[in-house]
Nucleic acid binder design. Structure first.
Length: 549
RNA sequence: GGCCCGAUGGUCAAUCGGUUAAGACAUCGCCCUUUCACGGCGGAGUGGGGAGUUCGACUCUCCCUCGGGUCACCA
């Protein structure tokens, strides 16, 4: 009887589960190798939490000489967007994450455990569903959405657990011949699992992050195949992760509540369960309270936000690693230049409560990351960012490549590296005043400090120009600056001034500030000697001249 | 509401029954310094509440409280 029903429901399915078991044999990998997967829905953008998970997938596979593949979970046509697969692949590539197997574009894939796009695996899911129906472990359900709503309402009124189970599972109670008849009549249906669970029994489950968790068994006759013939997440998860021979399922903690169901599915299907690593949700501080970071409200929920703001991918990943394993931070401090692969991720060290995304901390991580880059690299990556988000700046950088790199190289070498760039967007403020095109067109208020008298400023500049030689070494340069200071009644040394503040008008710093502001229009700049040298005498004269009326 | 998870400074967190309760970011002060940044030193700031267990509890147990997740033909 059941066989007849199964054939009727799935007339085109001629394969058996055994066929697929043989088609996708156990992977031949070294002991301990982890097979992980990133399994997103192509809904249009990459969430920071997805990036967090994908990074973990990649790291774990790498450090165990395993495999990390990409599976596309497109079983819900309603939420899908065009080109969703490419958005995912390219979005992750930006952060340096690529896959060994799986979808590589909308039309191609690689690897021998495919198809890796769920909508193309319909026959596989149906084959297993058919087998379940045959064995009396699944059945067609003809309830309409309205009927289901009515059941739920009744349950809510009775204050009992909602869902399709027990006495509420009306179609479960249909006789096989009744089912056959209704299928024959062409009534639409879904396929439900005939749950063998009992509410009074408990299951124990081990998660790498949370340890052992106890749940009551699943009793819900959940839908495994929807009316469009595609599987639900739960069914696809069991079948795909089994057939693709996943060893470690890494997914967000929102899935832990469906563990009883998944345990049951694996059992009914006769599959061995993989290990699970349920990762914490990344949270957002919302006026003092914690909430899940939301793609609607929070721009920083999108992974692309970080790239668009000019935060290097290494910094984003490093920050995520900090959240992942808190010992990463110390490791990174000791190994600022080491590749990520040298850090061993420990799944047990993952925190089980969701961390607040801290953009300020990210900026600090990023600042340190950029401090390890050469001027050439800062130039290249900064330019690449500017080409997309600040074309005026990009134009300037390209017009004066050597000048720009020279500036970027100031205080970039040696042990005390300048850390004033935390994102490429900072480059605008760091560079623009050094280009004459901007300097002479943009209004800027000269923030003179101690010396504000125009005539004195002019005198100082004039005197300075008389002794300035762009070929001087730093000591000579500074000595000359001190000479000028002395000439105008300012102490050569700050210390002298501090000792006897009444004997001087000020100190050498006041003089250098005049030169700095006259030259750049601002008080905070990198080392003045280096800047002056790069700018050269001609440019300095031109800039000083603007103060003449 | 049921089920599950969690709770250490503003944030990320270490400790795994005995500690002056690490460290990082942020913040404040000082020092270094021709400005800024860097760097150095220091300060302030933490175990949600209540019962137990124990010679001893941040650590173990229970209750409360609070936070989070989940209860779809979405993943």
């Amino acid at each position: 009887m059941s066989k007849e029903l199964a054939d009727l429901m799935f007339p085109n399915i001629d394969k058996t589960p055994e066929y697929y078991e043989e088609l996708y044999p156990k992977r031949n990998l070294p002991e301990g190798a982890m097979v992980t997967r990133f399994a997103p829905s192509p809904t249009g953008f990459i969430h920071i939490g997805s990036l967090f998970g994908a990074n973990l997938d990649r790291r774990l596979a790498d450090q165990s000489n395993g495999v990390c593949y990409l599976r596309i979970e497109d079983t819900d046509g309603k939420r899908e967007i065009d080109d969703g697969i490419n958005v995912i692949i390219n979005g992750l590539k930006v952060f340096g994450i690529e896959f060994d197997e799986g979808a590589v574009s909308e039309s191609e894939e690689k690897g021998s455990y495919g198809p890796y796009i769920q909508s193309r695996r319909k026959d596989i899911y149906q084959c297993y569903a058919k087998s379940l129906v045959e064995r009396g472990l699944a059945y067609p359900c003809f309830c309409t959405p309205e009927e289901l709503d009515a059941i739920r309402e009744r349950q809510e009124k009775l204050k009992i657990v909602p869902g399709y189970y027990g006495e509420f599972a009306t179609c479960r109670k249909l006789s096989v011949s009744q089912m056959i008849e209704r299928v024959k009549n062409g009534e639409p249906y879904v396929v439900r699992l005939k749950s063998p669970g009992s509410m009074s029994k408990k299951i124990r489950f081990k998660d790498a992050v949370r340890g052992v968790i106890e749940f009551p068994e699943n009793v819900q006759d959940i839908v495994i195949i929807k009316s469009d013939g595609l599987p639900t997440y739960h069914f696809a998860h069991a079948i795909d992760d089994h057939l693709m021979r996943t060893t470690h399922v890494i997914r967000g903690e929102e899935w832990v509540s469906s563990i009883p169901l998944h345990v049951q599915l694996f059992e009914v299907l006769g599959f061995e369960m993989p290990e699970y690593i349920h990762t914490p949700t990344i949270m957002k501080d919302d006026e003092g309270s914690k909430r899940k970071i939301s793609k609607r409200k929070d721009p920083e929920a999108a992974a692309s936000y970080y790239k668009d703001n000019g935060i290097p991918k290494e910094a984003v990943i490093d920050y995520l690693m900090n959240i992942l394993n808190s010992n990463f931070e110390n490791w990174r401090k000791e190994n600022p230049l080491a590749p990520l692969s040298e850090f061993k991720v420990d799944p047990h060290k993952i925190s089980s409560s969701g961390a607040l995304l801290d953009l300020v901390k990210l900026a600090d991580v990023s600042k340190n990351t950029i401090a390890t880059f050469s001027a050439q690299r800062v130039y290249e990556e900064g330019l690449a960012w500017a080409e997309e988000f600040d074309t005026e700046l990009a134009g300037l950088m390209k017009r004066y490549p050597d000048y720009t790199k020279g500036i970027l190289n100031i205080e970039r070498t040696g042990t005390k590296v300048r850390k004033d760039i935390s994102k490429w967007a900072d480059l605008r403020d760091n560079l623009e005043y050094l280009y004459d095109e901007v300097f002479f067109t943009k209004e800027h208020e000269d923030e003179w400090q101690k010396i504000t008298e125009a005539s004195e400023i002019k005198e100082i500049l004039k005197a300075y120009l008389e002794v300035f030689d762009e070929n001087d070494d730093k000591d000579t340069w500074f000595a000359k600056m001190k000479d000028v200071s002395e000439k105008f009644g300012y102490a050569r040394e700050v210390k002298d001034f501090k000792k006897n503040p009444d004997s001087y008008k000020g100190h050498v710093g006041d003089i250098s500030t005049v030169i700095r502001v006259a030259l750049t229009g601002r008080r905070n700049t990198p080392d003045l000697y280096e800047i002056l040298k790069l700018m050269g005498r001609e440019r300095a004269e031109k800039r000083f001249a603007r103060l003449e009326d």
